[in-house]
């Protein structure tokens, strides 16, 4: 479904150097990435902001032309055959709606039907199905500007699927959604993938999305593919130490406590690593009993930590 072969993308950036002179510099966004996604897969595409996620997605959808390398999606060259490709894929950008703000959701979906030239009868059946699965019924005739974020996202998903695409590309589809909307969206995506066989590529910051949805995960960092593998392996890597951040009243030598070890100190602040099997509550109690503590916080390992670890370990810098 997707073939990416040795793809690079760099941007020309004009910078001021000196008073009048401007120099052009090439900034690499994606650096020799290769991967393939087979039909029917559900792939999570992760990475910190600015790692090259959006750039990759834009190359896959034909918005950007790769500087070098070869991209094929549904057998088409995205940047050359963008319009043809648009008829075969669906794309949802989580922070940008494509719906008509002042019109009822139903009107937007009808318009999309015309843009994609979907037969009326096919559309009616499809709309009924999407309405049921995404629970659109209650607000199908409400102007989009009055919808909640979760409702709008479901509407956008429906709009991206009106033409029954083979591939669905999602960029942060659950960002800012409440728990119930998230659950509806996730359940829907799982059914879409398993029952209809739609290939799904998902970028997200939400590890919950990945754990519940994706069987395969790719991680990009600094424009390079840092990890491509199964979810269990990712989970193993995820079972990393939790970090307890302790702010003491004053600077002190590294705290010695059972079940944790100090990995970094910075003045009165100390970072303690607690292994997955350890008891965080016991560590907190022990630290508080022996030291004057101003503040204490526990950080679960997130995607950013995971990526740092993939790159050779160590405790990530405090952010």
């Amino acid at each position: 479904m997707i073939e990416v072969d040795e793809v690079c993308k760099s941007f020309t950036v004009r910078r001021r150097s000196g008073r009048l002179r401007r120099s052009r510099t090439l900034v690499g966004a994606v650096d020799r990435i290769s991967f393939t996604v087979a039909a029917g897969e559900f792939v999570g595409y992760l990475g910190p902001n600015g790692a090259g996620k959006s750039t990759t997605i834009k190359m896959l959808t034909g918005i950007l032309t790769p500087t070098s390398g070869r991209v094929r999606v549904s057998g088409l060259d995205p940047s050359r055959q963008r319009t043809a490709l648009a008829r075969r894929i669906g794309v949802v950008f989580g922070q940008r709606t494509t719906l008509w703000w002042d019109l009822p959701l139903r009107d937007s979906l009808t318009l999309v039907r015309h843009l994609y030239r979907v037969e009326r009868s096919t559309h009616q059946a499809r709309l009924a199905e999407l309405t049921e699965l995404l629970e659109l019924g209650a607000f199908l005739d409400t102007p989009v500007r009055q919808l909640s974020l979760g409702q709008r996202m479901r509407g956008d998903l429906a709009a991206a699927l009106v033409h029954d695409p083979e591939l669905l590309v999602l960029d942060e589809p659950t960002i800012g959604l409440d728990v119930i909307s998230k659950a509806t969206v996730r359940a829907f995506l799982t059914r879409l993938n398993t029952e209809r066989g739609t290939t799904i590529l998902l970028t997200t910051h939400d590890l919950g999305d990945v754990e519940r949805l994706c069987r395969r995960v790719m991680v990009i960092d600094h424009g390079r593919l840092a990890y491509d593998g199964s979810l269990p392996r990712l989970r193993a890597a995820l079972d990393a130490d939790r970090i307890l951040i302790v702010d003491l009243a004053r600077a002190a030598p590294p705290i010695e406590v059972d079940g944790a070890r100090v990995v970094r100190t910075d003045g009165p602040r100390q970072w303690l690593a607690i292994p997955p099997s350890g008891n965080a509550a016991a560590v907190v109690a022990a630290v508080a009993a022996r030291h004057e503590v101003e503040d204490i916080s526990l950080r679960e390992p997130g995607i950013e930590d995971l990526i740092t670890r993939l790159y050779g370990g160590g405790v990530p810098a405090d952010r």
Partner: peptide
């Protein structure tokens, strides 16, 4: 505003 990107995703110029 980056909205040209969303326009480019539709099968219409």
């Amino acid at each position: 505003h980056g909205t040209l990107d969303t326009l480019l995703l539709r099968p219409v110029g």
